[in-house]
Computed example of a mutant assay.
Amino acid sequence: MIKYFNRQTNSYEIEQVAGDKYLQWTYSSPIGMKILELIIKKKIFSSMYGWFCESKLSRSKIQKFIDEFNISEDEFSNPKSDFKNFNNFFTRKLVQEARPINYNKDILISPGDGRLLAYENIDINKLIQVKGLTYNLIDLIQNKKLAKHYSNGTCIILRLCPTDYHRFHFIDDGVCDEIHSIEGSYYSVNPIALEKIPKLFCENKREYTILYSKNFGDIIYIDVGATCVGSIIQTYTPFNPIKKGEEKGYFKFGGSTIILFFEKNKIKIDSDIIEHTKKGFETKVHMGEKIGLKS
């Protein structure tokens, strides 16, 4: 059972997990863990499932998914009849009104939909995965010189569930450099898996870039893949000027994670998000929503 805080309802809610029984069995049983290590965490498994989600055969999943998880079709920028396969639906664009963006230059927005954790004054050698499990920034980005710049800074972790909007966006005006890709495994990023796999984010396939932002300093922007994520697709052009709210890319099918690192004294995260993080709960947010301020 995964409990999170919903800002819109001002209450704690229980997450409806896609594939809950499968996740519980895989990450909690001896046989499941063996199959995980032998097959499920491998790239070929996620690639094969990605192939299925690109095929016409997967169209039959669309309506079932919409009904089961109560997804609003009013937000779709295109009618569902336009979707040729499940990934077309999964990576759907939304109408602009569905995700209004706060363009105030002093306001920090969420880069996507998901459940958010935030940590201030971080120790880059002991970043929190879950209570009792930590990892370090040097292993995550494999760049010791760069990692040192973020000591005592701020880290936010946005977990995207399969039911979420899966395009991610820029949080400020600026320039973004090229992608640095790090190969890895394809573990789930669900809290069920985070409690079982040490240094999971450092194990998974990931891509990072530096966003040289106009108002919030130089930000490490990390996109983490997961089980059944066919691909991480980047849609921006490196070194071209970008605007707050513009699309950076999207994940094909699967739950995924975005991790942002900010330098010391650049931002101040909203107190409710910090408070719930300290209590061990994620906060549900939407792309474009205010999550903090410029320091």
Score class of each variant (00 low, 15 high):
Tyr119His: 15
Ser46Ile: 05
Thr91Glu: 12
Glu97Asp: 12
Ser81Asn: 11
Thr91Ala: 15
Phe86Asp: 13
Ile66Asp: 07
Lys43Gly: 02
Ser58Val: 09
Lys64Ser: 15
Ser47Gln: 09
Lys42Gly: 01
Ser77Asp: 12
Phe86Thr: 13
Phe69Leu: 04
Asn70Gly: 00
Phe90Arg: 05
Ile107Val: 13
Gly112Phe: 04
Ile66Trp: 01
Lys80Ser: 11
Phe52Val: 09
Phe89Ala: 09
Gln96Gly: 03
Lys105Trp: 01
Ser47Met: 06
Ile62Thr: 06
Ile124Phe: 07
Ser110Glu: 13
Ile107Pro: 00
Phe76Ala: 06
Gly114Ala: 09
Ser81Met: 02
Ile101Asn: 04
Leu108Met: 12
Glu120Asp: 07
Glu54Val: 00
Asn88Ala: 15
Pro111Arg: 07
Arg59Phe: 00
Ala98Gly: 04
Phe90Asn: 06
Lys43Ala: 10
Cys53Ser: 14
Ile40Cys: 04
Phe76Ile: 00
Phe86Trp: 12
Ile122Asn: 05
Asn104Lys: 11
Asn78Gln: 14
Gly112Ser: 15
Arg99Asn: 09
Ser55Gly: 08
Ile101Gly: 07
Phe76Met: 04
Met48Glu: 09
Lys84Cys: 05
Leu116Ala: 03
Asn70Gln: 12
Asn87Ile: 05
Lys84Asp: 06
Glu75Val: 02
Gln63Leu: 09
Leu108Asn: 01
Cys53Arg: 01
Ser47Asp: 11
Arg92Asn: 14
Lys105Glu: 15
Lys64Gln: 13
Phe45Thr: 12
Ile109Phe: 05
Glu68Met: 03
Glu97Phe: 06
Phe83Arg: 10
Glu73Cys: 04
Ile101Trp: 04
Tyr119Met: 08
Ile122His: 03
Lys80Arg: 12
Lys64Arg: 14
Glu120Ser: 13
Asn78Trp: 00
Asp67Tyr: 04
Ile44Asn: 08
Leu108Val: 03
Ile40Trp: 03
Asn85Arg: 05
Asn121His: 14
Ile62Asp: 05
Leu108Glu: 02
Asp123His: 13
Ser110Ala: 15
Asn104Gln: 14
Leu116Gly: 07
Arg59Thr: 08
Lys41Ser: 10
Asn104Trp: 01
Leu117Ser: 12
Pro79Phe: 01
Glu75Arg: 01
Ile44Thr: 13
Tyr49Asp: 01
Phe83Lys: 07
Ser110Leu: 11
Asn70Asp: 12
Ser77Tyr: 00
Asn85Gly: 03
Leu94His: 09
Ile40Asn: 02
Asp74Thr: 02
Ile44Asp: 02
Asp113Pro: 08
Asn102Asp: 15
Ser72Trp: 00
Ile44Gly: 03
Leu57Ala: 15
Ile40Arg: 00
Phe83Met: 13
Ala118Gln: 04
Ala98His: 02
Trp51Asp: 11
Asn121Asp: 14
Ile71Lys: 02
Arg59Leu: 11
Phe76Tyr: 07
Arg92Lys: 14
Ile62Arg: 08
Lys56Val: 02
Ile122Asp: 03
Leu57Met: 13
Asn85Lys: 08
Asp123Gln: 12
Val95Met: 06
Ile44Glu: 10
Ser72Gly: 01
Arg59Glu: 10
